[in-house]
Design a protein around this nucleic acid. Structure first.
Lengths: 230, 230
DNA sequence: ATTACTAGACCTCGAGTAA
DNA sequence: TTTACTCGAGGTCTAGTAA
């Protein structure tokens, strides 16, 4: 059960700063913003709190409100939709990060035939074993969210007798101006880490060591350039 | 009278391409997207057409729908709200362009004392004479528009007996990872050209010649700039 | 001043159905 | 197949009011 109206309420709350921290807002003040009665505003807040969209701290004379986990997700999804509409021809995402040691799961992808065969076919290169891992600066994390909206180049999961291997999405990218491919496993825990694969040893080519800051460009490439240029 | 629900309908229509041109969509298909009944979808379309949010072309078996002037405005307003929420702390603009020969007016700025004094004070360097000019790729022109919203570092205009010299705005920037400053005269004709000043000869340092492609990052804020809206 | 409950007015929805 | 009307059920709103 998901009320369409809540999106608007969440949006208005976000606009007065409830995204970052608790803001003091009375139900009457909110009703003025929303153009409804105090009672309705109050009801919205109660319902939204119950659904986990917002957190509230009720005082005797004032309440403080903050957008919760679920509310943030809803707003983000909405934002992405609008981005798709208005920013449709966006071609790439730029961000900064720093090199870290490999923690990601991406190393599997570079050594298992079931994956490397797909790389050869879909990316037209055989990656060297291992991935270059970049932790995205937190100022740029929001930019990463945009990636969710794009399919990229699909790498299919598969199964052997022993276990199953998950799928992933790939995006052509540049790291410090050198072409590479970023690979995002479908099921990953590290939402701030990008893993790069390449036909070269990126660390050597770029002369990188842990902690080095790098500039990354991720090509979203919705154009038809990737798929079939026969 | 303005229905909140219509925003969602408009958004879904926009996502299937109704922003650019007429799309064929039956009321049943729309109802599936919206998660409501065919009757309700039909009613939405009728109401929204009446309010000027959409244009319709009714055929005998199919209708074609396009987002109208008013609908476009509503979506745009919505998008801007979300931009405020999520893009508020945007720190820089990334774009690509190519080096061109100096056509801009920026060369004045690097040779006239009235300007260079301000550069020394506000940018803390004395630029070498001349500017590096970059024509922005047209895919990134929309990104440039965002610059309008930022004051940057103000360079004041001034007058001598002979003539008057206009003001400009400066932004710290990077061109192919080398720090530089982009200078935008208040009155400029070339809306797709960026002019860079630097304490070094950028062409030499970066080994650039006309036609070379460069990556540019423009830093919007020097930290604690207030974000007062229009 | 607050928040939020209750009750009834009002509106919105979708099944049925016509064209 | 379409679009879109009517109308009754049920959901949502606000006035009144308590705490």
């Amino acid at each position: 059960m998901m009320k369409e109206r809540w999106i608007k309420v969440l949006k208005e709350l976000a606009l007065i700063g409830a995204m970052d921290s608790y803001v003091t807002i009375s139900s009457r003040a909110l009703s003025k913003i929303l153009g409804c009665s105090q009672q309705t505003a109050s009801r919205y807040l109660i319902e939204m709190e119950r659904m986990g969209c917002i957190d509230r701290k009720l005082g005797i004379r004032k309440q403080r409100v903050r957008i919760g986990e679920k509310g943030r997700e809803l707003l983000q999804r909405e934002y992405l939709d609008y981005k798709k509409i208005f920013d449709a021809r966006r071609r790439d995402i730029f961000l900064k990060g720093k090199v870290i040691s490999g923690l990601g799961e991406g190393k599997y992808y570079t050594t298992i035939d079931g994956y490397t065969e797909q790389f050869r076919k879909k990316l037209r290169f055989t990656p060297v074993p291992g991935t270059l891992n970049v932790r995205v600066n937190k100022d740029y994390l929001d930019r990463l969210m945009e990636l969710k909206g794009y399919e990229g180049i699909r790498i299919e999961g598969f199964s052997t007798e022993d276990r199953s291997f998950g799928g992933a999405r790939c995006f052509h990218a540049e790291i410090n101006n050198l072409d590479a491919v970023v690979i995002i496993p479908d099921r990953t825990h590290y939402m701030d880490i990008l893993e790069f694969i390449s036909p070269f040893r990126l660390r050597d080519r770029l002369n990188l060591k842990d902690g080095d800051h790098v500039d990354v460009i991720i090509h979203l490439g919705d154009g038809d350039e990737e798929s079939g240029d026969s």
